[in-house]
Design a protein around this nucleic acid. Structure first.
Length: 566
DNA sequence: CGGGGCGGCGCG
DNA sequence: AAAGCGCGCCGCCCCG
């Protein structure tokens, strides 16, 4: 993946301008030179194979992308700092990193105009952008890696994390191709035609009237939970909450229209016409991704709700004319990750070539696919009661290695310890408050309530660390997949016709990523190559994390129909 | 009037 | 009304 001759180059601020130079692992800079903001894109474009060291991808890359310049690889100091400073693989060698607190600043708020850094006077809060500080931090990180117990894993993680940051910026720039027309059609179907601002769509208004009629209360408020609860009680529906789960258990004429109303209202407020106008300019959805935004290493998002697009709206994702979408998601990613991490050959065998849950059923472990799914999710989440919790012991007998791994992670968390993913991302230490509660409960004379609360907090943390190792390693696999897809797509030729794009989107490109799913937008003539890239990258990711362990990562993959016709 | 908590629900 | 992890966002409601 990496050209052996690629050079590390650093870019940062100096004085009132921008300065760049070659950099080595010790943070020594050579061939430094100043660059005006207007020239930076040209400087970067002139060295397409360089590996760029910079403070924060979100502060530098959007402007380059806007100028049509893509970089092959980077080292995002902010993201890498966060990983190294808390990794148990680094240990005490991270002490200097922990002292460099300026690097713990959260990412700057993206302003959406992609001008922030170049116009700054350098006084703004956030991570340091000064080239000297960039070089010093790069040196600290390399020193921490030198002393790490498994540097190769960490290096892989840092590369994947940084590549993810590039992908996030590129996907924001390219956007998800989105048909406002299809979106509007879905809304109209579900809610009625778009009303004037301030008015309720017709179908929603009709549902509200149905609900009020069923309640026998013409003035019932449906949007205030406390008031709705009282109306329901007056009508004889004795629920403790107004959640879908609880309402659905009651036989009453109000239930069906109320559930329909809540569903429709949710669609209107979360992804209705106002959302469409704000987030889908010119038939592109441009969410703001936040790489490393979750402690487990998953991405978060800010604005637009990129990670919660309702499936109902999926048909609005439409390739441009002459282009196609390659949509791929990994079947049962987390259980497969667990099997591989634990070296559990029996679970890996159940996963081979099939739906993993079906594999568990066909081996006679559990009677139905639903049981298998519930049991496995329960094992990874720490369920102890209910259908799920009841089935976990069955898995414990069938797959002692896999279950032993998550059980051990839970015990570590309950006792205040730190767990880590395969590549070395580590869980946060327990908070001061958590430790106080635990030590308070073991003091002499602690009452039973205190002890019970401490046990409850301990188990809560155990469920978190239990899940952390699996969710976090799955996030690493997905990053490796994503990064390799990116590299493979970049090698494809640009579109011969119908290019929609500005910047990097003149050829097959990643358009969307959601934990275990990616969408590639590709010219028709490159569909086969894009599919191969997605498949080959999945195989590569598995080998990168788990070597020769016989686990396969099955993709559910489909290519969109020709988009030019409805 | 803005901020934060809460209930609720969308996603994996 | 969750049981059982991780998120973001909405409207309501209360508080200062």
């Amino acid at each position: 993946m990496t050209s052996p001759r690629a050079r590390w180059r650093a870019v940062g601020r100096a004085g009132g301008g921008i300065r760049l130079g070659e950099i080595d692992a010790a943070g020594r800079l050579r061939d430094e030179r100043d660059a005006r903001a207007a020239d930076l894109a040209a400087e970067v474009a002139a060295d397409p194979e360089a590996r760029w060291v910079w403070s924060d991808t979100g502060s530098w890359y959007p402007q380059l992308l806007a100028a049509g310049v893509r970089v092959a690889r980077c080292h995002d100091l902010r993201l890498c700092h966060a990983i190294l400073r808390s990794s148990v693989l680094v240990g005490d060698d991270a002490s200097t990193l922990r002292e460099a607190t300026a690097w713990d600043e959260p990412p700057p708020e993206p302003d959406g105009r992609g001008q922030a850094l170049f116009d700054l006077d350098g006084s703004a809060a956030g991570v340091p952008h000064d080239l000297r500080e960039v070089a010093a931090e790069f040196a600290r990180q390399n020193a921490a890696l030198e002393g790490a117990s498994e540097p190769a894993r960490l290096r892989l993680l840092l590369a994947a994390e940084s590549a993810g940051a590039l992908v996030a910026a590129e996907m924001h720039a390219a956007g998800v191709p989105w048909s406002r027309g299809v979106h509007d059609g879905i809304l109209t179907q579900a809610l009625g035609p778009r009303p004037r601002t301030g008015e309720l769509p017709a179908r929603l208004a009709a549902l509200a009237e149905e609900v009020r009629a069923a309640l026998g209360d013409a003035g019932a408020s449906l949007d205030s939970q406390p008031r709705l609860l009282r109306s329901l009680h007056r009508a004889g529906v004795f629920v403790d909450s107004t959640s879908r789960w609880e309402l659905a258990r009651h036989e009453h004429p109000v239930v069906a229209p109320l559930l329909a109303y809540k569903k429709a209202m949710r669609l209107l407020t979360a992804n209705g016409w106002a959302w469409m106008d704000e987030w889908i300019p010119r038939d592109r959805f441009r969410p703001v991704y936040v790489p490393g935004g979750v402690v487990t290493g998953r991405w978060a998002s800010s604005g637009g709700g990129a990670l919660q697009l309702p499936r109902l709206l999926r048909p609005a994702v439409r390739a441009d004319p002459g282009w196609r979408l390659v949509v791929a998601d990994v079947a049962q990613l987390e259980p497969r990750i667990l099997a591989a991490m634990a070296g559990d050959l029996a679970l890996a065998d159940a996963a081979r070539g099939t739906d993993l849950y079906a594999g568990i059923v066909s081996r006679g472990i559990l009677p139905t696919r639903q049981d298998a799914k519930m049991a496995l999710l329960g094992a990874m989440y720490g369920a102890t009661t209910g259908d799920s919790g009841r089935l976990v012991p069955v898995l414990r007998r069938a797959y002692p290695r896999a279950m032993g791994l998550v059980d051990a992670a839970a015990r570590t968390g309950e006792s205040g310890g730190v767990v880590r993913t395969v590549l070395g991302r580590s869980s946060p230490r327990p908070s001061e408050a958590w430790r106080d509660v635990q030590s308070g409960a073991s003091d002499e004379g602690a009452d039973e309530r205190t002890a019970a609360a401490a046990r409850s907090f301990a188990r809560e943390r155990g469920r978190f660390t239990r899940n952390f190792i699996v969710q976090g390693t799955a996030a690493e696999w997905a990053l490796a997949w994503l990064a390799d897809v990116r590299t493979r797509l970049a090698a494809l030729p640009s579109a011969t016709s119908g290019s929609p794009a500005d910047g990097v989107a003149d050829r097959a490109h990643l358009a969307f990523f959601l934990h275990d799913e990616i969408i590639v937008h590709t010219p028709e003539e490159q569909v086969d190559a894009a599919v191969a890239a997605v498949r080959d990258a999945a195989a590569t990711a598995g080998r990168l994390l788990f070597g020769g362990f016989p686990i396969d990562f099955r993709l559910d993959l489909r290519v969109s129909e020709s988009a030019d016709k409805d």
